[in-house]
Simulated assay, not measured.
Amino acid sequence: MKKFRKWIPLFLFLGLLPALLTGCNPESGTSYEIIYPSGLSRGPCDWEDVVPVEGAPYQLTSGKSENFEKNRSYDLWVLDENGEMLYEYPELGHSVVRGEAGNQENTVWVSCELWNTPHHSGYLNGCLEESTLLLLDMETGDILFQAEVGENECYITSKETRCYFYKPGEPESEKLFGLLKTPAKSAELYYRDTGDWAEPHTVYTFDYVDEPNMDGSGVEDRAKFYLSENQIRVAWTSYESVGNQCWEYLEKKVYEIPLAESAGE
């Protein structure tokens, strides 16, 4: 019996190994890049402390709160175009923030994101732990809308009352030694409406779980989300050599997804 006990830790480790291998690897994996109409983009190598707000004369930044050691929280600051602080939101931020102008006059959508990517600024597939999404009134500083966003729900953009998200799929899984099987689930683009936040509405179901079939000739795969007024263009790219010691992201598969009109339009 004693001989058997010494092997128990090894058996436990082997049992957990598949889960460990499928978790987020901060050194690798598919990356995301969100590209706004102005050309501003946010991706895994953007480390700026101050981030411009797309379509509005404001900037965003965040920093560890006074209670960071207790609850790992960040403060969010909104700055004017000259870098002067306009509003402070204690313990509402995360280490990664980005924003864009809202449809209502002088409003801004802000996404505060917690990514498990110590060697990147974020935006790696499967590594988004949680987010806080805010709609701010820039005249008063009031929070017009606030919602907590779940794991791996990557905020893309907003239109009227609809907030669009991308979520990678889930592979087929087995439990109870294969007696209980959960089928694979494809990646999705969907929206949540501020008036009915709990219910996601699928806009597009992709023909893959984690990423489309790539030819494997590149050193990195990146999903680029190009935003426009009525469409999200999702381009899956591969970072490859194009000769003369030059490298580029080459498009391998593209999805052009129209944004649904809201009931009030």
Rank of each mutant, 00 (worst) to 15 (best):
E69D: 15
G93A: 07
S111D: 04
V53E: 02
W77S: 14
P57C: 13
P118Q: 13
G99R: 04
E113R: 02
L134M: 15
G102P: 04
S131N: 01
V51M: 14
G99S: 00
G63L: 12
R42M: 13
L136T: 06
E27P: 00
Q59E: 11
N103Y: 05
L124S: 07
L60M: 09
E129R: 10
N82L: 14
T132H: 12
M85D: 14
L114V: 03
K70H: 03
C45Q: 12
V110L: 05
V51Q: 13
L21R: 05
T140M: 07
T30G: 13
E84S: 15
G99Y: 11
Q59P: 00
Y36R: 15
P52A: 11
S28G: 07
T107N: 06
Y36T: 07
C127P: 05
C45T: 13
I143S: 09
Y32M: 07
S121P: 00
L20K: 09
E130T: 13
G102I: 08
D80K: 04
P44Q: 06
D137C: 07
V110N: 02
N67I: 13
G55D: 03
N67L: 12
T117N: 04
P44R: 08
T22G: 03
C24D: 07
G122I: 03
I34R: 07
G55S: 05
C127I: 08
W47Y: 15
S131P: 05
V51L: 01
A19M: 12
N71L: 03
I35F: 01
L79V: 13
T140N: 10
Q104M: 01
G83H: 05
V78D: 08
V51T: 13
P26R: 03
N125Q: 10
V96N: 10
E139C: 00
T140Q: 13
G39I: 06
E69R: 14
N116A: 03
P90M: 09
A101G: 02
C127Q: 03
S31A: 15
G141Q: 05
P26T: 06
P57L: 11
A19H: 08
A56W: 01
E113L: 00
T132G: 09
E130K: 12
T107Q: 06
G43F: 11
L134K: 08
Y87R: 04
E130H: 03
T22L: 11
Y32L: 10
E91Q: 15
S111E: 00
M138P: 02
V78E: 06
T30P: 10
T30S: 06
